[in-house]
Nucleic acid binder design. Sequence first.
DNA 1: ACGGGTATGGATAATTTTTTCCATACCCTC
DNA 2: GAGGGTATGGAAAAAATTATCCATACCCGT
Lengths: 122, 122
Amino acid sequence: MYEKKIPKDFSCGFSVLMEIIGGKWKSYLLYLIHNGVHRPNELHKQMPSATRRVLNMQLRELEFHGMVKRVIYPELPPRVEYFLTEFGDSLLPVIFEMNEWGNNHLERFQKLITDKQLEAVA
Amino acid sequence: MYEKKIPKDFSCGFSVLMEIIGGKWKSYLLYLIHNGVHRPNELHKQMPSATRRVLNMQLRELEFHGMVKRVIYPELPPRVEYFLTEFGDSLLPVIFEMNEWGNNHLERFQKLITDKQLEAVA
DNA sequence: ACGGGTATGGATAATTTTTTCCATACCCTC
DNA sequence: GAGGGTATGGAAAAAATTATCCATACCCGT
């Protein structure tokens, strides 16, 4: 386990939220689980560009933070399913609003990026 | 200037938002500028644990993304002030909602962190 | 026995972000 | 001219995050 060297300051709500959903795939994981994708392998199929390794790690962090619950079925082959907790559910409206703001300015932002790349080429 | 090697995917609103406010001090910068702290040195005094270097870099990114406007006064000693753009203003409600969610769960989260540290010591 | 399915994690490399250190340039006051 | 104020950025180190590679273990069907 990696030990952080610079202590983080969780004195404001924003920093807490960022600690919980700051990971590269976390918000998408929450979204997919909310949408009925519960098993690790299924989640991976929905986001092939992520590694199983990273998904497992971020899922465990989400579990540690109380956003998802990991249910192990005593079967063979092994089956595991993740579900949102009540805590995790409460986060969805925030994620949706964040996503909505971004969508409202998506084109403008993409144009910005494109123009910058053109400029770099020229 | 640092060139990214892994291209980012800005196809969803969430990723756009995270690109804009994902930096360690960016949301706090926006908040302070909104609250009337406009000059770089004043901003630094409000967040002493950040370096002037980092603040400058993140301010330039916020400017590039169109969230703040940098105004240079042709005076001596030099004076520079940052202001939120209309674009930046539209982001504030989202930041406030993120912060509010975190505040509502602040104690629970901090207890989680504390317990983990105690566990590590034991 | 081999290939495929499930789920997971160690070790290390690569990438990205942030920090640290030091440098510039100009003006003012003492 | 020494010390303070303003604003800014290069170079490199440190820290944090993510990616890559390979390994485990068990079961099923062929």
